[in-house]
């Protein structure tokens, strides 16, 4: 294609990048995303300035000084029966308990940052792992066809037939009890690899289907048939003709899968099946907040908003990417 100004041909990738950069909403979402990532990733460098307590050690018997007055972190209620203790609410004071404490007297703001680290780490790694597995499955099924295709497709059906969470819950219960053994490798039960692996596995059928479809179309495309009739070996066809052409489909999947993985992670952690205490993720903080929703709703609301902002940014950026690469919207499924 020759551009109107008569300059040299720009490759499709360059064009896509230009289209993406000119998409203002996609770029601002990328900015938001990078901000969230940076905030969370570098939490260890500054979170202790915010909290001045260890966000992983419970601190129910502690006190803190607000406006020169010393108060308990778990505040007794002055009702006639002296029933119950409430964690301190948001102080809106950036240097101590900005957003208040959770039921174990830990600083919510710094837990949000550390929780975000885990949530993001899990969702990005799970998306990456899922794409690798799905590409392997999709390409083998689509390219080989025949029996291999049927077996792989039915296996995907099996995984897809069990509703996402049921599948994840069953896997989590086993892995949380005894860890995961893959050959000589043992993943301990409180490792983040467990939720990463589960989420990646759960979404393999979702990602493998479009890849398989694309490979099947390409396999019967004229240029592939031509190459084959010229006697080009299969592996070269795969490497030279098929792989580069499915790359856009895979790239478009990435942000959407990450968004899905983030939602899945929070749901799993909410059902106590994801990240294990004392480590935190946005999902586990929501779960902590469930027990405080009547007294300190902030504990549940803040991580929920963090999830919404991040997932939204990922989705809008994914949209921009899709438009830039000119791929039609694929339908997506819920869990």
């Amino acid at each position: 294609m020759i551009s109107s100004s008569g300059q040299t041909t720009a490759g499709p990738w360059v064009q896509a990048t230009r289209a993406l950069i000119s998409n203002r909403s996609a770029m601002s979402c990328l900015g938001v995303l990078l901000l969230v990532i940076l905030l969370c990733v570098f939490a260890p460098f500054y979170a202790h300035h915010i909290a001045r307590t260890d966000p992983f050690i419970s601190n129910v018997a502690g006190t803190l000084t607000v406006n020169g007055q010393e108060t308990d972190i778990m505040q007794p209620n002055d009702n006639p029966l002296h029933l119950g203790l409430s964690p301190i609410g948001p102080t809106w004071h950036p240097r101590s308990y900005l957003l208040g404490a959770d039921s174990q007297g830990r600083d919510l703001a710094s837990r949000l940052l550390y929780g975000g680290r885990n949530s993001l780490l899990i969702s990005f790694s799970a998306a990456l792992l899922c794409i690798i597995m799905a590409s392997a499955v999709g390409i083998s099924a689509g390219f080989s066809g025949g029996v291999i295709d049927i077996i792989l497709s039915r296996l995907m059906d099996i995984m897809w037939a069990v509703p996402v969470y049921l599948f994840a819950i069953s896997l989590s219960i086993v892995t949380i009890t005894q860890g995961l053994h893959i050959g000589p490798i043992t993943i301990s039960s409180n490792s983040l690899l467990v939720p990463i692996f589960i989420i990646a596995l759960v979404y393999v059928p979702y990602a493998a289907r479009p890849i398989r479809g694309r490979v099947m179309t390409l396999r019967n495309a004229e240029f592939v048939l031509a190459a084959r009739s010229l006697g080009v070996p299969e592996y070269r066809i795969l490497l030279r003709d098929i792989l580069p052409n499915i790359l856009p489909s895979v790239i478009v999947l990435a942000p959407l899968l990450t968004a899905l993985a983030l939602l899945a992670e929070s749901s799993l952690s909410f059902l106590s099946l994801g990240v294990q205490a004392p480590a935190a993720s946005w999902g586990t903080i929501i779960q902590d907040g469930e027990g405080l929703i009547y007294t300190r709703p902030m504990v549940a609301i803040a991580p929920g908003l963090a999830i919404i902002i991040t997932v939204m940014a990922l989705n809008i950026f994914g949209d921009g990417l899709r438009d830039a690469l000119d791929i039609r919207e694929t339908s997506r499924r819920n869990g």
């Binding site: 749901s267 929501i286 549940a300 999830i307 919404i308 997932v311 989705n315």
Partner: peptide, 24 residues
């Protein structure tokens, strides 16, 4: 954009917030 927002809200969280508002 509203549609995207809908897709991005965790359903259990939305349910909880709805409960908080309507039940408490």
């Amino acid at each position: 954009m509203a549609g995207l927002l809908g897709i991005s809200i965790p359903v259990f969280w939305l349910g909880q917030v709805a409960n908080l508002i309507t039940q408490a």
